[in-house]
């Protein structure tokens, strides 16, 4: 799980082009959207693409996606239960 979270953080940094950030700068439980990392709705779509491309997880419903993408912790838990790759 810790490895997964670390990999995931690096993937988030790369895919969203969060220049100057390192995996350790992202807290597992900090909200990714709003006041946390300050990501927006287009970032959330890009994170869904990340899940699909790297873990074979397809999220059709944007509202469901929002819950899964609340934090690195929630993403990692969802990946562990649902990954297909």
């Amino acid at each position: 799980m810790e490895d997964l979270k670390r990999t995931l953080k690096q993937q988030i940094i790369d895919s969203l082009n969060l220049q100057g950030m390192k995996p350790e700068d992202i807290d597992d439980n900090a909200p990714l959207f709003g006041e946390g990392l300050g990501l927006d709705s287009i970032d959330s779509l890009e994170l869904m693409v990340l899940l699909e491309r790297n873990y074979g997880i397809k999220i059709e419903d944007a509202r469901e996606g929002r819950k899964i993408l609340s934090s690195v912790q929630t993403m990692a838990e969802y990946i562990q239960q649902n990954k297909k790759i």
Partner: peptide, 10 residues
Amino acid sequence: EQALNPAGFI
């Protein structure tokens, strides 16, 4: 047509 990033489209 699978898993496309929307940024280029927008």
